[in-house]
Nucleic acid binder design. Structure first.
Lengths: 344, 344
DNA sequence: TTTCATATGGTAATCGTTTGCCATAATGCA
DNA sequence: TGCATTATGGCAAACGATTACCATATGAAA
């Protein structure tokens, strides 16, 4: 672990730096004898190549930057884990930028490709991490980027198509709503995520489609605008309980919200699903341990992470991207938080 | 966003690269006129400094690598978030390596300082991310490293003192156990984490100390070896329930385990805390939403993250590290999962 | 034996910055 | 006014790898 470089190594062996470099990172280019000699010496000396030097020369960093609003979000962290794993297998390291939804931080992290600290971006937000100014510039070139789970508007992207890995939110939401309808529910409240997020819009659309196609009215007063948080689930549920006409089911657009919802319901002595049914979305690892275990949509977390990396690396490698949008299968998971509509 | 470099910029302005560099990153070194001129031109041209070039020259990367067994662990991700924030404020980016506890991956990530991809390491494991071989070598120099929450043995560290940011696990565990004892519990089962982890050992020690100092026997058959997971909580609790003599309280060494435990208890129709009391450890964000809300030890997640970074940057900057061990205050949070021992 | 292709190793340029050293200009002070 | 500082800008050498290009050696084919 001494601070030895390729130069010193070459000098010690009485050979050129070119041979050392080749023996280590392009072994076919040298004779077996040379290769063995150099590799042995390198190992002995504890030689570690300085990646900065290499990166500078090759203009490849083998880093991926992941831009994410909240790294502690349970659903996201599942995807992250898979990302990281896949990337590592392909020889890439993953940098994370937690933006807390702050625009300025998004920009900072988005800049890391421009400053050559990363080769590409995986983004978990519905906003691109570049200034409008930059994007408007005609010299703007979109760096390798794929979006996870959140659709980005072509308008916002200045006409660029942004590759996306996601499930079909509309369809999943429709199925979930249909499940409630099949149980006889008619008054189904919704606690949305941030409405500026397309995933929320899509899930809302699925809900509406399911209602309408079953001949049920979409009651605007049952749609509550929230966020993807525990707190939103808890506070909005209380609001729902205060309504003159109570719904018999609550559709929470993420599992954390559903947990908050269950909490508030139990606090007010509602029995689930006897009095009110609750569904979530995502199937985070905690969902099956909630009481009652949560009916939800399972997203293929591992595949999402993996595909994000695969697609991104294809772009980085300059390969033709066959599918700008990868839609992965979700699954309706029926557990104990949903039941038939109660008699009135 | 054009691919312009310092050289081109200098040529355009008819000045030397030195002046450009100074105007941008060492502004006091040049005249106001020069500074303004260069900065304006840089902005106009969308100049982005290539950090690889700079890093190579300065041998500073301004990256920190965080090595963590499970990035999706809820407690950890809280700390991570804070880490990331503090680091960003200090101008450092954070890279993450999720090792899944795999030795080989630990080594890979540990190597990133040697290969100059990062300036320092924050480690969430009880093992150092270097090969024994390396550490045994006399030329081994410990890179800047601080450990979060897990103590590292000086033996294992080859005599090096590894700075640590943590709470006092022994004390916290003692208080938590004492809380149960105060409620009249005598037969208190424990579901541990991985026993190779010092945090587990320490929490176990705290438990034992509390029992003994209250004149209670430590019953070995009540100590169940587990892991810091939901699944362990669930399966081991079932085991506990099958025991001839059932405990009246279960001490889970982390909140996720406690959730698994609550789940299993409810599944078998035990009422909490009426029949059995349960405590967790960490106070993850979900804990207060469990049913019943969980009595636990709150760790100062944000401060832990912050301190880790502060200490690490001090080491990187070559400052004297005043305290090799930072012990932060925890808090006993009493909620609804604990109650008086039931009448027999 | 000659000729050509291939295998192997070396030389030195290069990637994009930063910075030590120097020259000159500007300023302060007596 | 003269001299000592200080401010400012340029030159060119790093940093540590990779690699285009070249020279030589080796072997095969004729």
């Amino acid at each position: 672990m001494s601070d030895i470089g390729i130069k010193q190594l070459a000098k010690n062996l009485g050979i050129s730096t070119a041979s050392v470099s080749r023996a280590l990172s392009n072994p076919d280019r040298v004779s077996t004898a040379m290769r063995k000699k150099v590799q042995a010496a390198a190992k002995l000396a504890g030689y570690r190549p300085n990646k900065m030097g290499a990166s500078l020369r090759t203009s490849k960093t083998r880093n991926i930057i992941v831009i994410i609003p909240d790294i502690s979000d349970t659903f996201n962290s599942g995807v992250i884990r898979s990302l990281e794993r896949t990337a590592a297998n392909r020889g890439y390291a993953v940098l994370f930028g937690d933006t807390q939804g702050i625009r300025e931080l998004e920009i900072t992290y988005g800049d890391m490709v421009q400053t050559r600290q990363a080769d590409g971006i995986i983004c978990f937000s519905h906003r691109l991490p570049f200034t409008d100014e930059d994007m408007a510039s005609e010299s703007f070139k979109m760096p390798p980027l794929v979006n996870s789970c959140e659709y980005i508007d072509a308008d916002q992207a200045g006409g660029h198509v942004v590759p996306l890995v996601t499930i079909d939110n509309v369809k999943a939401s429709r199925e979930l709503t249909q499940h409630l309808i099949d149980l006889g529910h008619v008054d189904i409240a919704v606690i949305t995520g941030d409405i500026s997020s397309p995933s929320t819009t899509q899930r809302l659309q699925g809900y509406q489609e399911a209602m309408l196609s079953s001949g049920l009215a979409v009651q605007q007063q049952l749609i509550y605008e929230g966020t993807y948080t525990l707190e939103a689930g808890s506070t909005i549920t209380k609001e729902i309980l205060l309504a003159k006409k109570r719904p018999t089911a609550i559709f929470c657009m993420c599992d954390e919200t559903a947990l908050g919802c269950l909490y508030a319901l139990k606090e007010h002595n509602f029995s689930i699903p006897h009095d009110i049914s609750v569904v979530g979305f995502d199937d985070i690892k905690f969902a099956q341990y909630f009481s009652p275990a949560l009916t939800t949509i399972a997203q293929p977390v591992a595949e999402i992470g993996q595909q994000c990396v695969e697609v991104l690396l294809d772009i980085i490698d300059g390969k033709e991207v066959k599918k700008p949008m990868v839609v992965l299968p979700h699954q309706l998971v029926i557990r104990d938080s949903t039941g038939p509509v109660p008699d009135r």
